[in-house]
Design a protein around this nucleic acid. Structure first.
Length: 255
DNA sequence: GCGACAG
DNA sequence: ATCTTGTCGC
């Protein structure tokens, strides 16, 4: 069947095939459990050169999105949610969720293969698409410089910011206690992201480039989205909706 | 061998 | 991710 090679080619072609995104992922992720760790890494290596690390954003950003995936405690069900906010007012514009069973194990460094299926399906359900996405996880701040934020951005060809609660890889020095303080996250001599203090005296978040945005712009925007809490409003809302979607889905299936 | 390890 | 209220510390 030569399945691994054809699988690799198939996944690699996705970003060129916006119009058939839906069926692409249907096929790809139906057999995701067949993908070996080595093949998944090969996909990352192949897609990595497509990441754009400069600002290629709509002039005034109108709609910003947040993503999150919720896991059920005692089944293998997950819910991916994407919430759309008006960039200026932070009012919710739309939300879409998708529940399914997890098809890939948690392996540090291969996170996108676990969470992207549900996120892409949720993305397809949106009535309109966002100008920019902040996703829950790393972008370039990754062993192979291709975290979830990069994979998502390259796949749907949209600007994406990676914003994680903890770091995956790299070292940093204390940014300082004040909100807005920044320290470079370094790995093997590369400046892969920033540790950003979003609230006074509260643990920093880790910002990195996902796609079509610079680290400086990404850091500014994340700070702006954290007016009141440690995490961006986009992430907080997506988390909330993913939780609701999962509960609703379980109610439908069970009781 | 040991620690670290997005969610 | 999930477990989870009160409690420790500034």
């Amino acid at each position: 069947m030569g399945s691994i090679k054809s699988e690799l080619r198939y996944v690699s072609n996705i970003s060129f095939q916006r119009t058939i995104i839906s069926c692409s992922f249907e096929r790809t992720y139906k057999s995701l459990s067949m993908l070996t760790e080595e093949a998944a890494i090969a996909i990352q290596e192949e897609l990595r050169p497509r990441v754009i690390t400069t600002d290629v954003l709509p002039d005034p950003i109108k709609i910003i999105a947040g993503t999150d995936v919720e896991y059920d405690k005692d089944t293998n069900l997950i819910a991916g949610s994407i919430v759309l906010l008006d960039y200026d007012t932070l009012q919710e514009v739309a939300v879409a969720s998708h529940c399914m069973e997890v098809t890939f194990p948690y392996i540090p460094g291969l996170f996108s293969f676990r969470e992207m299926p549900s996120l892409l399906r949720a993305y397809e359900k949106l009535p309109v698409h966002p100008d920019l996405i902040i996703c829950d996880g790393q972008g370039l701040a990754h062993q192979r410089r291709f975290g979830l934020a990069c994979h998502l951005g390259v796949t749907i060809n949209k600007p994406v910011i990676g914003c994680g609660k903890t770091k995956l890889t790299g070292e940093y020095t204390d940014p300082g206690a004040a909100r807005g303080s920044v320290a470079a996250l370094m790995d093997a001599g590369d400046h892969i992201g920033n540790a950003l203090r979003t609230q006074d005296g509260i643990n920093p978040v880790f910002v990195s480039v996902g796609h079509k945005i610079s680290l400086a712009t990404a850091t500014d925007i994340v700070l702006k989205m954290c007016a009141q809490y440690r995490l961006p409003e986009t992430t907080r809302l997506a988390d909330h909706h993913a939780r609701l979607a999962l509960l609703e889905h379980k109610k439908k299936i069970f009781g």
